[in-house]
Design a protein around this nucleic acid. Structure first.
Lengths: 96, 96
DNA sequence: TAAAAATACTCCATAGGTATTTTAT
DNA sequence: ATAAAATACCTATGGAGTATTTTTA
């Protein structure tokens, strides 16, 4: 009886970065990970949700309709939490 | 140049469960983890943020003022993402 | 070709379990 | 004495890196 049947939230964080940059490589830079790791994270998220989130094109990545909806939702959430932490004067060091 | 200097979002998820249940043990049950693991996750989050989030009392756990603010913010975010995923018909299986 | 994503392979850090101790009443 | 959280210790897993392959314009 879990209130939130959610996927790993860390995967959502990576998803958000990819959607924002429209690039796995740039997202990886921001997240201090390799392109390889981000690629697998996004795949893991898509598998967990049973949704395709990105269109992999030749030299571009675009979000699917579902991806766009999720992106907006996650962005709202991260913005909100981020603002909350800033207001609380929380340390802003990156995770691990 | 990371847009969101956020802690591990998975830790926020556990934090939210503990704050809601006011219990590490019950949160652990919900999260399919042990009390031990949840205790360490919350400690890791508090360390990462440099904030004390809970008052550990004798037979009760209560959130601090900062914890309450964060709890409200995280709850909003999780509710929103959760609703979004439900609307998209995403699979609801738990993460790994 | 070239630029970007996917993947095979490997490794090891660390997340989590078990068992125990501590705490507070 | 009890119930809950913290912690020491250990182990296995899976997350991440490197190197390579695939894709497609």
């Amino acid at each position: 009886m879990r209130k939130y049947p959610l996927p790993s939230l860390d995967l959502l964080h990576s998803f958000e970065a990819v959607a924002r940059h429209r690039s796995f490589t740039l997202a990886a830079d921001e997240l201090c990970l390799t392109q390889s790791a981000v690629s697998r994270q996004v795949k893991a998220l898509e598998d967990a949700l049973g949704l395709r989130l990105f269109h992999r094109l030749h030299r571009a990545v675009t979000v699917t309709a579902e991806g766009q909806r999720l992106f907006e939702s996650v962005t709202r959430g991260l913005d909100d939490v981020s603002a909350c932490l800033a207001a609380l004067g929380a340390a802003t060091k990156a995770p691990s």
